[in-house]
């Protein structure tokens, strides 16, 4: 028996709004996309003379019963959140300044929000990406279903790539139900590591070297029970988490966070995750014997360059930026 032959090919993306964006990107000359510029400095600014575009905007389709949403990447996160909230859903991206930060910006930068401990990294929310390639073509990666291994995982490759491999135009994101109750607690002088091992599926655990903050989410009865049995009287309800001491950010293996005890540099560490927010990230990194600024090892950097060379041979996408 002979092998199969495919009947007909999937057609290229024909959405006129996306097509217009692809046309704008074109196939020559340095180009980048600006969202809300809330994380504009990450990876270095694009070189002078780079054309700056805006990605298309708008929530295209929210399907609550599929728990997916199709959204253009220029849409502010707050606008997306408002649409999803109408049916009790959310995409827990949680960027700072959600009214300005765009979906495309958050994905391209790839930094997770406060609730990563429970909801996972940003990349786990991305199901399908439609992006403009360096050649100016609209390309689709992934698909609009919650479980899919059809082809290589370009979606994860694009998250955090700072728009250096392709420019995101439209995405399908996984939604999740909003918790019925969401409550922050503060424990003055509490040991965050002891609390961490005893809590089940907490949403966030923060530690500044002295105090510990915990975000519990879920059924009210469970939040109350965990607060009583695990947090105890050492913790009290508070309205908000503390502000991060600065925009700096260090990526640390969670097992190393305890070494920050007694640090003379201000920090706010995400326990169990390993993101450390700091005014002086270099000092934090030095105190943990980490290189600053962080760089991939030479062999990984060579692979990064091999990928970049194939996706963007002329180096026109976000020139000057390095993920």
């Amino acid at each position: 028996m002979s092998g199969p032959t495919a009947t007909g090919a999937a057609s290229a993306i024909e959405d006129p709004i996306l097509a217009a964006f692809a046309e704008e990107v074109g196939s020559a000359g340095p180009v980048c996309v600006a969202g809300g510029r809330t994380q504009w400095e990450v990876g270095g600014p694009p070189v002078a003379g780079t054309r700056v575009l805006a990605a298309p905007r708008g929530v295209v389709m929210h399907q609550p019963d599929e728990m997916i949403v199709r959204v253009r990447t220029g849409t502010p996160v707050a606008e997306l959140s408002e649409v999803l909230a109408a049916t009790g859903q959310m995409v827990p991206l949680d960027p700072p300044a959600p009214e300005r930060a765009t979906v495309g910006g958050v994905l391209s930068v790839g930094r997770s929000g406060w609730r990563r401990l429970r909801y996972g990294p940003v990349r786990d929310a991305l199901l399908e990406a439609r992006f403009v390639s360096s050649e100016g073509h609209l390309v689709k990666a992934g698909g609009p279903v919650v479980k899919n291994v059809t082809g290589f995982d370009l979606c994860r490759l694009l998250v955090g790539s700072l728009g250096t491999l392709g420019l995101l135009a439209e995405v399908v994101l996984r939604c999740t139900p909003r918790p019925r109750r969401s409550q922050w607690f503060r424990g003055v002088g509490a040991d965050p590591f002891a609390v961490a091992t005893r809590l089940y599926r907490s949403s966030c655990l923060l530690w500044d070297g002295t105090d510990t903050w915990v975000l519990l989410e879920g059924e009210p009865v469970d939040v109350d029970a965990q607060a009583a049995s695990v947090l105890g009287s050492a913790f009290a309800e508070v309205a908000h988490p503390p502000a991060a001491p600065g925009p700096g950010r260090v990526s640390v293996a969670p097992s190393q966070l305890h070494r920050l005890a007694g640090s003379s540099t201000g920090f706010l560490a995400e326990i169990g995750v390993g993101v450390v927010h700091a005014h002086d990230p270099g000092a934090i990194a030095a105190s943990l014997d980490l290189a600053w600024p962080p760089r991939p090892t030479d062999d990984v950097a060579a692979l990064d360059r091999a990928v970049k060379t194939r996706f963007d041979p002329s180096g026109r996408l976000n020139p000057g930026r390095v993920p």
């Binding site: 790839g110 290589f152 995982d153 998250v159 293996a253 390993g274 760089r295 950097a301 993920p323």
Partner: peptide, 22 residues
């Protein structure tokens, strides 16, 4: 080569993510 890392946001592209499922 080692792709990814035990820290949450390793520098560079997410080659770990690209490799899984390849």
């Amino acid at each position: 080569v080692v792709l990814g890392g035990l820290d949450p946001e390793p520098a560079g592209l997410d080659l770990r993510g690209a490799f899984v499922g390849s």
